[in-house]
């Protein structure tokens, strides 16, 4: 087995895939975002509870590969409790990580998310990893539109 593959499928990713955090649906008063990846059929339903500019909770449901589900699990874990603008900043860091760009390692504790950095070496899989993040950004955007 190549070491490249081991970099992609790190143990922590497999753990999130096998034991997803925040799997499910927030029932009352949450924002719901459905998003799919039309090239492969992955789909995610993300529910977000945003109050006073802060993400109180986030849950996801859906179908997809190990990378997309693990990424969704990690994302919900990471943004819970974050101010909306911080979630947007974190998302930017995540995209930079996916593109193999330098990213700001100081401002946030990336925790488990850092394990996804290996995806950048597999360009065909970047879309899998970013699906949940795109859904989160869209959800926050919706909330802001509502408030304007």
């Amino acid at each position: 087995m190549s070491s490249n593959l081991d970099q992609l499928y790190r143990q922590v990713i497999m753990d999130h895939y096998k034991n997803p955090r925040n799997k499910g649906v927030i029932e009352d008063g949450a924002l719901t975002i459905n998003m799919n990846n039309p090239t492969c059929g992955d789909r995610i339903q993300l529910t977000l509870k945003v109050e006073d500019g802060k993400i109180e909770s986030a849950k996801f449901d859906g179908e997809g590969c190990s990378i997309s589900l693990a990424s969704a699990s990690m994302m919900t874990q990471a943004v819970k409790g974050l101010a909306v603008e911080d979630a947007v900043k974190l998302s930017k860091i995540f995209y930079d990580m996916m593109l193999g760009n330098d990213y700001d390692v100081e401002s946030y504790d990336l925790g488990d998310i850092e394990a996804l950095s290996g995806v950048s070496k597999f360009p065909a899989r970047i879309k899998c990893a970013t699906l949940a993040w795109k859904a989160m950004e869209q959800g926050i955007g919706k909330k802001e539109e509502e408030e304007e």
Partner: peptide, 12 residues
Amino acid sequence: VHPHDVATVLDS
């Protein structure tokens, strides 16, 4: 094993 993961392992 999701088909994407199958394809990535095969590609390697």
